[in-house]
Write a protein that binds this DNA or RNA. Structure first.
Lengths: 217, 217
DNA sequence: GCCGTACCGTACCGTACGTTACGGCAGTGG
DNA sequence: CCACTGCCGTAACGTACGGTACGGTACGGC
């Protein structure tokens, strides 16, 4: 028995993690056209092992998505010396991180297969991606928003509404266009610019100061 | 020879339109698991005819997406007696229409298959949906935005930036959550509410009056 | 009446791929 | 040395489905 990662139920050996990384790479290259044979060949393992470890193709895909999700861990926000500057910086950093993840090839590939599978009977992948995508983003951001409200820097009634507005201002049409195959290059510079713009717009809508920076320029 | 619709290259007989409607229904039910045999059976036509008319499976899917796109025609905006009230009404009506289309089962199904196909070699469906989705929305909305700017009601430099902000405020996380299979019921009442909120937020960001309605409450 | 055209229904073919089975090999405990 | 286990590599099986072929029917033109 080798070392296993402590993901509760999902105890993965190092070998299995390597296999899942190979599956991830193939998912990026070939999308849902990924075959069990191709995974076995890429990972230099036998198909027998694939079926023993993951049950069937869906099990492999599910494990792959969960494995990727387990790699992206949230960086918590520290509420020390909280003021408008740190709130702004937090929002901006958050938007930047999110746009970077969103536009990455792995995120695009995983969202594509999850969206595809959500159409058939197997909703598992969709639920997992939903849980580790928008919902995880909400769970991470809401404490910051509530801290902003508690300190009087932000005004809103429903935290969820404020979050979803921020989501819209940050993501806009970027994700759907990427998923549909639009060539949309996001450079670090443009992501920085968009994060700043989204943050300023959000503060203009929900900030306590009406003299907040004009959004959109 | 039956009557043909005047779509330039794509001359479709009534029979073929019926077939495409059947394919559309199956696409909603089964998603990409749709088979040529199922389409033939549902439309009471022979597979031979399917291949004669549409070439192959991809051709059938492409024709189906285009057929749906041809059914959704834009309602132009009339720039008579243009003022803040009509601008607001136009934006709000636009947001409402868009949310209704977006949350419809057909739109969800088509976006799902297009996203799935964008991952493989066949980018056609993605391009078509992109063209008839976000891009068409932009083409329809931009004249209204520019009219607003010309009349001094709106302030922005890049029309595209203004459009994308409006897109984000309207769509938010709704589309990606629907595509991923989230049960998200949009009632007429909630759509009306969201359209109003998005419009007010947009005017708060880009409107000439700083005393515009506070967004988000 | 006869032919050509268009189409339906169905049977058929080829292949790709998920899944299973088997032979061989390395490492480990006794 | 020998059994056992875990795994690789590959071959084999079954099936679903894209694509094709063919017989049968209706209809319009001559």
């Amino acid at each position: 028995m080798q070392l296993a990662v402590d993901v509760g139920e999902n105890a993965l050996t190092e070998r299995q993690k390597d296999v899942l990384d190979a599956a991830l790479a193939l998912l990026v290259e070939a999308g849902d056209a990924l075959t069990m044979t191709s995974v076995a060949r890429r990972a230099s393992c036998s198909k027998e092992s694939l079926y023993k470890w993951f049950g069937d193709r869906d099990g492999l895909l599910t494990a792959t998505v969960q494995w990727q999700a387990s790699k992206v861990r949230a960086v918590p926000v520290n509420p020390e010396a909280f003021n408008l500057a740190s709130l702004t910086a937090g929002l901006q950093r958050f938007a930047s991180d999110w746009l970077h993840v969103l536009s990455g090839t792995i995120s695009v590939a995983l969202n594509r297969v999850a969206v595809g599978h959500a159409g058939s009977d197997k909703h598992d992948l969709g639920v997992i991606v939903l849980e580790n995508g928008p919902f995880a983003m909400a769970r991470r951001l809401k404490p910051l928003l509530q801290l902003g409200r508690d300190t009087g820097l932000l005004h809103f009634n429903e935290t969820d509404e404020a979050f979803r507005t921020f989501f819209g201002l940050v993501v806009r049409d970027v994700q759907i266009r990427l998923l549909l195959g639009d060539r949309l290059e996001l450079t670090d510079a443009s992501i920085d610019r968009d994060s700043l713009r989204a943050t300023q717009q959000f503060l203009a809508l929900y900030g306590a100061q009406t003299e907040a920076a004009e959004g959109g320029h």
